[in-house]
């Protein structure tokens, strides 16, 4: 599942963002979208964050939304070496972001299974202790994530 979603051109190796807003904008910027669509997407991701941070703790966040602006289920991965204050549940800075966007008409099971896979991989990554943030290429990030995708 994750394998199909991971794309090397949708990976940020060293994010500049320091705040939640900046992080979401930086992740959205990876997508080839006009500004008005980016704005819609940002609003919809923020709306979800208001309900409770998607910073699940131990340095990982999974911002997600269904949005009219994408044509397909879309995943962007971001690595932050210095960490972002994402108002995570445990208050710790976030070093690894999985931003998942699905179309409104996406059969909700596909979207949910993708979210479920990401949550599972995240648990496996934090289970190891430190999150790796030092990557020299997007391909390395993909391999790192997939090496934690056991199913």
């Amino acid at each position: 599942m994750l394998k199909e979603l991971l794309r090397e051109d949708r990976i940020i190796l060293d994010m500049k963002a320091e705040t939640k807003e900046e992080a979401l904008k930086e992740l959205i910027d990876v997508l080839d979208l006009p500004d008005d669509k980016k704005e819609i997407l940002f609003k919809s991701l923020m709306q979800r964050e208001i309900l409770g941070s998607t910073g699940i703790g131990k340095g990982i966040a999974i911002p997600h939304s269904r949005s009219i602006v994408v044509d397909n289920i879309t995943l962007v991965v971001g690595i932050s070496k210095k960490g972002v204050d994402f108002e995570a549940l445990d208050g710790k800075p976030v070093h690894l972001f999985f931003m998942l966007i699905a179309t409104p008409n996406d059969p909700s099971m596909k979207y949910l299974s993708a979210l479920g896979s990401i949550a599972r991989v995240s648990r496996s990554i934090v289970g190891e202790g430190e999150i790796k943030t030092d990557f020299s290429s997007p391909k390395e990030v993909v391999d790192y994530i997939l090496s934690h995708d056991h199913e």
């Binding site: 919809s44 709306q47 979800r48 309900l51 409770g52 998607t54 699940i56 999974i62 939304s65 269904r66 549940l89 409104p104 909700s108 949910l112 299974s113 979210l115 479920g116 990401i118 949550a119 648990r123």
Partner: peptide
């Protein structure tokens, strides 16, 4: 869509998100 999503019991079950 957001309200529908977070009220789906499968959502919390599958993702652990609160």
């Amino acid at each position: 869509l957001l309200i529908q999503q977070v009220e789906d019991p499968q959502y919390t079950e599958k993702t652990g998100l609160q």
